[in-house]
Design a protein around this nucleic acid. Structure first.
Lengths: 192, 192
DNA sequence: GCAATCCGTTCACTTTAGTTAAGAAATACT
DNA sequence: AGTATTTCTTAACTAAAGTGAACGGATTGC
């Protein structure tokens, strides 16, 4: 399981054995059962997550309704906005599946960053990459219709459509579950 | 004009005179006339922008139509995705107004980062903040209707509604110009 | 194993956005 | 200033998403 992490990191920098051991000694690998809530609305937190296995989702509760806005799967990282802003969280994070996560907290990160300056460099590069990716995704969302968004998802992340309940996918696409059902029926009809 | 930059940076770290001079010696302040195109689709680029005065916008040309996806105004920064991915740009960047911009390129940044490690730390913090902010904005977009998005914009960035042409605002809100006109008329009617 | 709940789909109906077109208003051009 | 172009608004019509309700099918919890 550690290898998954180090293989991923090796795309960015090559770590020495010392550095790898320093990371491992932090004891940051954790397992969570499906359904576990990692963060609740209103809570403060310093924890960031990196998914080694499984899937976590972020959702808001607006007028009593869950609005799912993101899924994070294998090799994806999430630092909740509340960790950055130091305010209570606006949303929930829960485990969609049984997960193995890497959990870090911001104090720990600050310490590692000062001990291993190259780690700071890695973090900067990673977050710049994530920001660029997030902006592209946002742009694609703005410039396309719900149907195009669904077709796009089918292309880019077919796994999500399999592993995620429809009603959560719907709000992820910015629509209601009924609309997603209808939209899918429409697509099937066009094909035939 | 430099003071604008240093005042902004002072919120994150306090720079020494040496560091300030190092930044100034890079000669990164530039003026651009309204309408100037900073980046075209298909071009490669290493340039990042920080707006000191004015407004720049990013837009795609899809089926011959301009789709505006973002505006950057005073004290906002933009590193185009193509700078990160090192691929040709998918979009255009143009000056919506006469601008004074801080223009850096990634080679220059790498050099400054290695000379002044604290600068790397600053960059990491800034891009982590921007990522958190971008995700919140994306979430808000997904979970609200065009009308709510417009009302939200009216609250959060009233200046944009003044300085940006309607048809560009429309695609920024993910709708057609005609729909924005109609939606505004609808809101006015409700008020009365 | 049965009841209760949740989930996905369908339907009828309402509301809103997309489309096409036209005209008025603002802007840019020479 | 006068013309041309672009931008904004309005309108009529079409297409798609929201809403409320109903139905089976799956899942969960005693």
């Amino acid at each position: 399981m550690q290898d998954l992490l180090f293989d991923f990191l090796s795309k960015y920098i090559s770590l020495t054995e010392d550095e790898k051991n320093a990371i491992l000694s932090l004891d940051i690998f954790h397992s969570y059962k499906k359904g576990t809530i990692l963060l609740k609305e209103g809570q403060k937190s310093k924890e960031s997550y990196f998914v080694l296995k499984g899937c976590i989702r972020t959702y808001y509760v607006i007028d009593g309704e869950e609005k799912t806005t993101a899924f994070y799967t294998e090799m994806e990282a999430l630092t909740p906005p509340c960790v950055i802003s130091k305010n209570p969280s606006e949303y929930y994070i829960s485990c969609l599946e049984d997960n193995i996560l890497l959990v870090s907290n911001s104090d720990m990160e600050a310490e590692v960053n000062s001990k291993f300056p190259r780690f700071e460099n890695l973090c900067r590069i990673l977050s710049e990459e994530l920001l660029a990716k997030e902006r592209i995704d946002f742009d694609a969302f703005k410039t396309s219709s719900p149907e195009q968004r669904y077709l796009n998802l089918l292309q880019k992340r077919p796994d999500l459509i399999q592993r995620v309940p429809q009603h959560q996918l719907a709000s992820y696409l910015g629509i209601k579950p009924q609309s997603l059902s209808r939209l899918r029926a429409r697509i099937l009809e066009k094909k035939s």
